[in-house]
Every structure is written in C-alpha cells, then in structure tokens.
Design a protein around this nucleic acid. Sequence first.
DNA 1: CGAAGATATGTAACCGGCTACAGATAGCAA
DNA 2: TTGCTATCTGTAGCCGGTTACATATCTTCG
Lengths: 350, 350
Amino acid sequence: MQLGNGDGNITTIYEVAELAGVSVATASRALNNTGYVSKEARSRVLEAARRLNYHINVNARSLTSGKTYTIALVLPDVTNPFFPAVARGVEDAASRKGYSVILCNTDGSPRKEADYLNMLRSRRIDGIVFTTSELPGARISSIIGDSSAVVLVDRDLDEPYDIVKTDNVKGGFLATSHLISLGHTRIAVISGPLSLTTGMERLQGYRDALGQAGIPFDESLVVEGDFRQEGGRAAMERLIEQCGGRPSAKLSAVFACNDLMAVGALTALEEHEIAVPSEVAIVGYDDIALASVTRPRLSTVAQPKYEMGVLAAEMLLRRMANPNLPRQQEVLQPMLVIRDSTLERRSRCG
Amino acid sequence: MQLGNGDGNITTIYEVAELAGVSVATASRALNNTGYVSKEARSRVLEAARRLNYHINVNARSLTSGKTYTIALVLPDVTNPFFPAVARGVEDAASRKGYSVILCNTDGSPRKEADYLNMLRSRRIDGIVFTTSELPGARISSIIGDSSAVVLVDRDLDEPYDIVKTDNVKGGFLATSHLISLGHTRIAVISGPLSLTTGMERLQGYRDALGQAGIPFDESLVVEGDFRQEGGRAAMERLIEQCGGRPSAKLSAVFACNDLMAVGALTALEEHEIAVPSEVAIVGYDDIALASVTRPRLSTVAQPKYEMGVLAAEMLLRRMANPNLPRQQEVLQPMLVIRDSTLERRSRCG
DNA sequence: CGAAGATATGTAACCGGCTACAGATAGCAA
DNA sequence: TTGCTATCTGTAGCCGGTTACATATCTTCG
C-alpha cells in the first residue's frame, strides 16, 4: 500500500545504507550491534530498515558466516504417535535459540535416510537430530562428514555420536516386574524388531526381571513384532493360537514393547473374547495418548518424549558450539504408569 | 580416511573445476546440465565432483536464483493428533519435488505466528502452508509481503490466499443427520471455538440438519468448547449437570466437533455412569487414531488429513510456479465413519 | 570460399551480506 | 607539540555459486 518500495518487495542492506546515508559496512554494524557505530548513524540505519521493512537475507549471511541456523529432525514417521512430542520438544528448544527445524520422514528406509542426509549436507545444516533405523553409523559419517553435528535419539549406534535415550532395559524390567508382582509367571512378550537397540534392550529388561524372580525364560513366549498395531495384533493371534485358543495356564500376561502393538494385541484379545485384565493382563510401552483411552485403559511404561526432544536439541546446540566436547550421552528414566489393563491376580496359578 | 581432502571437509565448485581442469562456468554447466558442455569436459567434471565428494551449497545458489527450495509448515501444534498426518502429506509432496519443509508450532498465538512469519521472510522461504488461528489475513500479507506464496489449510480467511479445506458444514450435517436417522431428536453439540471458521461451519451443519428434519434449534443444547480433550470433558459435565445428572429425555445424543473433545465427553459420561451409546450416543469429528480404540469405538466424521497435506503442498508449488494464477480453492469431502458410539434407537422417545 | 550457425569454453560481474584494512577525527598524556 | 589510543566510517574483497558476454573452433550451406 505504500509508495512503491514499502511492502512486499525485498530490500537489501544496500538500500538501507543508502537511505540512511551511510556505507553498507556501517549499516551492517548498526544492524548487528558489532564494531563501532555512532549513536546517530545507528538510529538512522535502524529507522531506514524499519521504513523499508528490511529483513536480512539469512542465506546470504550464511555464505560468509558458514552457519545456517538450521537443524534437521530426521525420523521414521511423524505419524507414529511417539514422534510428535519429540518433534515438538526439538522445535521448541531450537526456536528458543533462533534455529529452524527441517522435518524429514524416512520411513526407516536406509535409502531415504541417505537421500535426506545428502540433501541436508547440501543445505549446510548446522546439526541433525536423528532417529535412524538401520543406517550404520559409519555410513552416516561418510555422508555428512563433519559438516554438521549429530545427536541420536532413542537409538544407539557404534559411532561416536551424542545420544539421548531412555533406559530401555530398565523400562522392560519395570513392565515385567510389575506383572510379576501381580502374581504372573507365564508372561509373554511381543518384542520390537530385534535389529533395533530399543527392541533388544526392552527384551533384555524382560529377561532380567524374569531372572531376578527366578522364573525360567521360555523362548516360546517371545514373539518378534514390528512396533506397529497390525504387527501387535498378529503377534497376539500367534500367541493365542499357540495356547489352543484359551491362554489359561499357559499364559496370563503380555508385555508389548510399545503401545501401538499393545493396542493391536488388545483388539486380538477382544475378538477372541479373552477378558483383559482378568484372563490376560497387558502392559505397553511409550504412554502415547492412545493408551489412556482404550478400554481397559492401558498400563504402560512412559517415556519423557517431549523432554527427550528438548534435551536432544540442547545437546546438539552444545555440540555445535564446541565440536571437541567429549561424547555426550543422556539416559532418561522410564516410568511405570498403572491403569486398568493390569490387575492384582488372586489365588489361581502358581 | 582419505588423504586430506576427501571426507568431511566442504568442497567448492572451484576445487571441482580445478581438478577437472576447466573453468567454474564449465563446471557449473556440467553439474547442472545447462548450456553447452562437451562430453569429455562433463565427465571430467562429474568424476572430479565424485572424487571430492562435492555437494553444492544450496544457500549460495539461492543467492543468485532467488529460490530456496524450502517451504514452511506453520501450524498450532504437531502434538495435536490432527496435524501429524497433514504434516506428513505436506512433507511427502514437497520432498517429492525437491523441497524441504520447516516446521513451526505456533500454539495458535498470533504473536508467535507473527514471529515465525518474520523469521521465514528472512529465510526467503518460497512458500508457506499455513494453519493460522487468529492472525487476520491482512496482517499475514503485511509481514510476508509477496516474498512467498501462501496456502491456507483448514482455515478460511478474507485474504485472497489459496485454500485447502474440507466441507465442514457438510461434515456437521453428516454427523447430525446420522444421529437424527437413528431416532434422536434431543441432540446437544459441543462446538469448537466459534472464532474459528471450522468451529462455526460445523455448527452450521448441525443447524442445517436439524432444520431439514424439522427439529427446533435449542440454544441450551449448544456448548462452546476449545477443541481439546479437557474442554470436551468440561462441556459434557455442563450438559449433564443441565439435565440434572441423568440425560434421559432431555438429551439423547451429542455431536462433539472434534474427536479430542468427544473423548473428553466420553470420560465424563463414564464417570457419571451414563451408558454410551444406549443412554447417550456420541459422534466426533476428524477420525484421529484415538477414535478407533476407545470403548465404545467412536463414530466420527473423517477428514482426509493426509490428502489435505498433499494437496496443500501441491497447490503451493503451483502457486509458486505461477503467482498470477487465479485464487485456488480445494474443498474435500468429509466422510461419516460409523462405529459403536452411535446405535439404532428403538421405541422410546419421540 | 566466405558467412552463418552450432558448439564449447573462459572471464568477470553479480546475488546480499560480512569484515579486514585503511583512513580520518578526537581526546588525552607526555 | 607530538604520539598514542579510542571511536567512527568507507572501500573493497570474499563467501560459493550462476550467467551474460566475448572469444574460438568446427560445420554447413549458398
């Protein structure tokens, strides 16, 4: 609406300098509060910038500074209910410090992961919060080189990258011990993919709890799932079939290594008209929003998802500020949330 | 691991040109497949780029091209279960065309929205997929000017921006008609914030359905909610209280204008031991993942969330390619999903 | 054979910032 | 007065690409 110059058109620092009657050097110094600038010059520059609706061109600046003030969040799928909270945490922490976040969904495909990493390198991203699936650490470094810092979330790689995770062994232990303390001894586990550290570790916690209670580990009670609802349902079907339709003495509780699979298991149980928790108790993992609305409401092991995101971003910024820092690792504590899908078990069974 | 040059360090086109024994102009042409380049020169350049692990600096390029190949997705909160699917759609469609997506959570705060828009302008973003809450269209244009294209999702502004939405009036109509067809006549509505077009339009659909069925509109059956779970619960409490604890003849069904509020209402009903759907039927809106795991499973009006994201991104790219296009508007159709929270109503009531 | 056009390449300017360096002025101590 | 420091400003080069323009060679056609 202004004359010709004002509104939409893009202004450069040259135009600001000209209007203010100074050189670009002075204009730059005034706008960035660096070096020596007289009061009058500064205020003339600021006024000119205001009048021209000047917005610095970040890309141009990054050409000299080498910093883009951009980080990336690379994860399998925002649509997986575990990730939005993490993403929000990352974005909050990043934007607080003036960083923007680029979102990348890889579906866990090493191919897509590699493609994104290449793209991110071309963008000279300052850092990456990465939840990879299968890409080996060495491959990551070979692509991004040391052009950007990396923090791994919820994954554990051999490479010397910083890490934010929760104690999955402990989480698995908590879930299983809870079931044991309720009197269960025949406890099945629907694990995550055993190629992922999360999958392995939660299973390890399960074994630890069993061992500590003196309950023998029974291979046939372990079914490998895929962290997805349909996989959880299929795994539960398999378990039910294995028991000849009625769990009864063969199996009285299930630890599903994430909530999505637990929900799948729940539907399978419902279809077979097996009562939860009276016939079979079930514990999930993650405490996604779903968990508190199922019937029965799902007992689960909560992870501090938002905090993980925040910590990951903050850790990344620290690493960016000082690439020579020793490797950082932050292990958060999972927490058992007891709802209705697990219940005290009286008398029956041994 | 290589000599000194290979791995992590950043290479410029100058080094590539030098290694290939050509000028930067030729190198640039070879890498971009523009202009004339001899076969030999091209292959020497490509080989040099490969050996040096050359990745173009996108920021430098955008300095001359004026394009950043970056768009932004500005929404209230990824943590709201409605948005991840939209986000995924936007990211998929964008990355398919080589664009990156910057994620911005505004919490619906006009202040944050304005801050983000300013930041995005500084980044010379090519376009924005925007789900604003309260920022007037004029304000948006005053900030971003015509420096980037804008597509509005699920919102309707006076400004001449492109729009992707679903037919909310129709959605409200579908939900209400469904209840009416089951025999309900006393239907309460827990609306969204009436300051939002989504809120208003769904309510309008409700009124239309009532009108068409000849059921008088009763002000006292309308409670304004906030699209959040706790708000839905509070609204339901209010309705129950209004009926003196037992809905009975005063109210036999509720249309909650999104699923989150429906879930909240469900918990309120459960606490009061009011059976769903036999005493009170309930329909939600959005069909988020939650809806299919509640007990009873929630009948709801589904929006094609992922498709909305895809369409928004594609529309944005079209607009970016041709700023003079007439205003585009895409209205998708909502779809009724009948589950267990609504049920045929026999005899009783009139 | 000469002119026109296609092909190939390099030089240099430019995109929009930042900053090293140099030059200018002023204040102050010796 | 001289010399030194602190303050202020501008010129120009650089960051890493793209591309207009000039130049040169090779075909091709009248």
